[in-house]
Amino acid sequence: MRDVRLTHDVGLKALTWLHAHRDGFRLEPAAEAGGSFLERFKPVGELALICKVLFREGVAGSRQAELARQLLDHAWREVLDGGRALVVGQRREPLSPVPFETYVPFRELGYGEPELERAIRINHRLGSWAALEVSPVRRLGVCTFERRYGMTPSTPLPEAAARTWLARTPEPWTVEGHIGYDITHTVFHLTDWGESPRGLPDEVADYLALWLPVWLDDWTDLRRWDLLGELLVVDACLPYPSLDEAAWTALAGAQSPDGSMPVSGADGEAAGGSDGGNEAFDLLYHPTLVAAFASALATSRAMSGLAPERA
């Protein structure tokens, strides 16, 4: 990647759109238990994780840092009601890991909700919490969040990691969309969302260095911007990232002038336009967040001279 401005500008535009459309991060208090109330936490948690990356990487510039801080404050105070919404969610579905997963990045950024923390501690002692039947990559995510929180992971991390698809380094030609997301999220968890590239075992890093170029090439041609963005995050987590020029150029080209990123296809208009209310927001927020995430990591790696290890 010759042009660091390209990766940087994708992130700035994406964050600007997310800030302008921050009302799209919303809960649905009337939803029944098991319905969409807890599901609406997911975008908020992802927003916090990625804003944390922006602060950490320190390449965002003052404008992006200000937008990110305002977004976080909005998410905590307005959307999560200062954390009370997470408590309500936990009471509706006491065994769900979702309120905990949403809370971790906020807590790391200095926000707090004592009642939720009590529930988290109680949950962590339950045999049922550790026994919850979730996919291996989800289990790995819960366990890494437990470690980040300061608790003993309910499954030892090496064991949780070994159960994932990626850890087995299977035939790379079998990868399709769902497996692609399992791969990207396994990398996110193993590296603490890009913070610790050394969290990738050598065998996994070698496997990804070998086959990621094929997947980047494929999902660029498929114009699947959401997964491509996540794969570019994976690239930036490798010891020697490629910062694939073709993929980045295509991603930047797909970004709408207003900064939103379509899931797939030509542009944001395909999703009904980025001013199309909540429905459009729900389609656009994730690829747009991912674009901001990939931008922060790739820009940081490019500016650090592609050093294999970060200080």
């Binding site: 790379p172 030609w173 990868v175 070998l210 086959w211 170029p213 094929v214 090439d217 494929d218």
Partner: peptide, 13 residues
């Protein structure tokens, strides 16, 4: 390795 990548690409496609 490049031929192997091309193999993966062709199977995927």
């Amino acid at each position: 390795h490049d031929v192997a990548r091309g193999f993966v690409r062709a199977v995927r496609r």
